[in-house]
Design a protein around this nucleic acid. Structure first.
Lengths: 335, 335
DNA sequence: CTGAAAGCGCTTACAG
DNA sequence: CTGAAAGCGCTTACAG
C-alpha cells in the first residue's frame, strides 16, 4: 500500500492540508513544519501521486509527442531536444508513434487526449489527408505545435526545417563545383518536405540559368528499391547527369552503391549530395556530402513554443512559424 | 470545458453510474441504454479521462520504459516491440531515457513511480552500480523486468540477448573460414554484455585449440577514437591478426576505415565481424558481417513477461530469464 | 436493470 | 500559520 499524504498527516498529527502545503512549499507554512514534513516524507518513502494532483488541479504536467517513428535519427534527436525543455519545466512526456499511418495517428491523438496531456508536439504522418482529429484537439483546448510536417489550415505555431533553402544550397554547391547536368532523386511527391526540396532544386537551377531537364528529376516511393531509376537515369553515358542531389541520405547511399556497381566513379563521373547528414554519411564511400538539419535545436524550439501557448504567453508573430536554416556539410562525394 | 460522464448523464436524464457502466460495457446494462449512451458520447465528443479512472481503480493503464537512450537502433526497435504488446493490452507507455547516467536514471524511476505506472521495462545505464532505486520500486510493488542489461541480486524476470553464444558463433565462423590469428576489440570492460562477448570469444578459441594471445584483445571506452588501438594491433604486418571480431558494428566500421587507410585489404588481409547487424552493415565497404539480435522480438517478450507479473500470472521458471540467440549474417567483410 | 453514495489522493478557497 | 470541507472525474459495492 503506497504512502499517502494522509499517512504522513496521521503520523505527525497534523492535517493533510498542512502536509500538502508543506510539500508544495506554500508560503503560509512555517519552516519548522516544512522541515518536519519533509523529514517524515523521506522516512516513509513518500512518492507524490501526480495522477491525483493532476485530477484536482486539472493539470497533468505532461505533454505528448507524436511522431511518425522514433527510429529515425532525425526524430529521436528531436525528441531529445523536446524532452530537455519539457523536463526543465517539471513536465514529463508521453511519446507516441503513428508509424506513418493515418489510423494509428488518430488513435494516438485520442489516447493523448484521454491522458489529458496539456499540449502536443505533433509531426503528422505522410498518409494524413484528413484533419478532423486535429480539430478535436482544438475543440478540447489542447494546444499543439507542428513539428517538421505541417497540416494546412491551422493557426498554430510551426517549427520546420527550411527545406527549400537547404535544397537550394545543395544545388548551388554542385553548380559552383562546375557541374552542368544536375539531377534530383526526390522523395514521395505527396510529402510537403519532398516538394519543397524539389522547389529549392528548381530555383537554384533557374537562378544560375541552367536548363531544367524533366528527365533529370523523379519522385520516389519509400520502401521500394530504386535501382532501376538510377539505371535508367545513368544508363546512357553520353547524356547522363554529372551530379545527383537526393531527397535523403538513404537514397544517396543507395544511388552511390548502384552507381559504383555500374562502373561509374563518385565523385569524378557523378557528384552526389544527400540530405539529413545522418550517420550514414561518414560510412559510405566516398563519404557523403549532405545537407544538415539541427533536429535537437528544432525540438527545443518546438517545446518552447508549446509552453508559451500553454502558459498563454504572447508569441510575437515573427516567432510563430520558425524555419531553421540548414548547412551543407561537404565531404568526398562532391569534391 | 471538457465533457464528462456527468454531462452525458444530464443530457440523457440518467445517472452517471449508468453512463459509466454503459461506457464500460457492463453486463447489467440494457443494450438500448448502451446504444443511447454511446451515441450521445459520440455526439458530445466525449473523451474518457484515464487519469480520473486510474485514480479510482488504482490502475493507471500505463507502463514505463526506461532505456539508456532511444537513439540507438537496438533500443528503438525494442521499444517498438514493447509498444506493440502494450497497446494490445490497452495500455500506454511512458518512455524515459537515462542518457547512460546514474542520476538521470534515479530521477526517471522516481518520476515513473509518481506517474503510478503499473510496471517498468528497464535497461540500466552502464554507470549504475547502486541499486537503491530498484529496491524502492520493489517497496512500491511496482514490478519491472530487466531488458538487455541486468542488475545483480534481483529476483525479477530478465530478457537478454545471448551475447556469449553470439560471440562464440562469430569467432567460430572466422575459424571455419581458416583464420588463424583472431583478435577482439571489446566494449567497456565494466559492461556485462561486453564481458560476455569477450567470454564467448575466448570459449570459441579454446574449443578449437587456438592459442589465446593477450595482445589480441582489448577493451575500449565509448566516445573515444580507437584509431591508435588499431594502429598498434596491426602495425607490424609480420605478427598482426588476420581477423577481428568487434563488440559493435560502430567499432567494426571504425576499424575497417582505419585498416583501409593503413593499406590493408578487408577481408583478404583481415576479416572483420561486427555485432548488432545495424544499418551500417550494408553501407560500409566491404559490407560488414555481423551478429544479429532481434530487439523487436526481445521487446515483445519483455512486455509479455511484465504483463504476466502485473496480472499475477504464473511464470514457469524456465521462462523467467529469457536469452535470445543470435545469428551471424555473413557479408563481404569475412568472405 | 438502474441509482445514490462513498471514495481514490490530492489541492485550495474559506474560516479562524 | 493551520484545519475542515468540498471537489477534480471517475468506479463500484450496496440497495432496490
Amino acid at each position: 500500500m503506497p504512502i499517502t499524504i494522509k499517512d504522513i498527516a496521521n503520523s505527525l498529527e497534523i492535517s493533510p492540508s498542512t502536509v500538502s502545503r508543506a510539500l508544495n512549499d506554500h508560503p503560509n507554512i512555517s519552516d519548522e513544519t516544512k522541515a518536519l514534513v519533509a523529514a517524515k516524507a523521506k522516512e516513509m518513502k513518500y512518492q507524490a501521486n501526480f495522477i491525483a494532483a493532476g485530477l484536482r488541479t486539472r493539470k497533468s504536467n505532461s505533454i505528448g509527442i507524436l511522431v511518425p517513428h522514433i527510429t529515425s535519427s532525425f526524430f529521436s534527436a528531436a525528441i531529445n531536444g523536446i524532452q530537455k525543455v519539457v523536463s526543465e519545466h517539471g513536465y514529463f512526456t508521453i511519446i507516441c508513434q503513428s508509424n506513418e499511418n493515418y489510423h494509428d495517428e488518430v488513435d494516438q491523438v485520442r489516447s493523448l487526449l484521454s491522458c489529458k496531456v496539456e499540449g502536443i508536439v505533433l509531426s503528422i504522418s505522410s498518409e494524413t489527408r484528413i484533419y478532423e482529429h486535429l480539430e478535436t484537439l482544438q475543440a478540447y483546448d489542447t494546444p499543439f505545435v507542428f513539428f517538421d510536417r505541417v497540416a494546412p489550415g491551422f493557426d498554430t505555431p510551426t517549427v520546420e526545417a527550411n527545406d527549400f533553402t537547404g535544397a537550394y544550397q545543395a544545388v548551388e554547391h554542385l553548380i559552383k563545383r562546375g557541374r552542368k547536368r544536375i539531377a534530383h532523386l526526390g522523395g514521395p511527391d505527396e510529402l510537403g518536405i519532398s516538394r519543397r526540396r524539389y522547389e529549392g532544386y528548381l530555383e537554384a537551377l533557374r537562378t544560375f540559368d541552367y536548363e531544367v531537364n524533366p528527365d533529370f528529376s523523379v519522385f520516389t516511393e519509400p520502401d521500394n528499391s530504386h535501382e532501376h531509376i538510377i539505371e535508367e537515369m545513368f544508363g546512357d553515358k553520353s547524356k547522363m547527369p554529372d551530379a545527383l542531389f537526393t531527397f535523403s541520405d538513404e537514397l544517396a547511399v543507395e544511388a552511390i552503391l548502384k552507381l559504383k556497381k555500374m562502373g561509374l566513379n563518385v565523385p569524378r563521373d557523378v557528384s552526389v549530395v544527400g540530405f539529413g547528414n545522418s550517420n550514414l554519411c561518414e560510412i559510405v564511400e566516398p563519404h557523403l556530402t549532405s545537407v544538415t538539419h539541427e533536429p535537437a535545436v528544432m525540438g527545443e524550439a518546438a517545446a518552447d513554443l508549446l509552453f508559451k501557448v500553454i502558459q498563454n504567453r504572447h508569441i510575437p508573430p515573427h516567432q510563430k512559424n520558425r524555419k531553421f536554416d540548414s548547412r551543407v556539410i561537404i565531404r568526398d562525394s562532391s569534391r
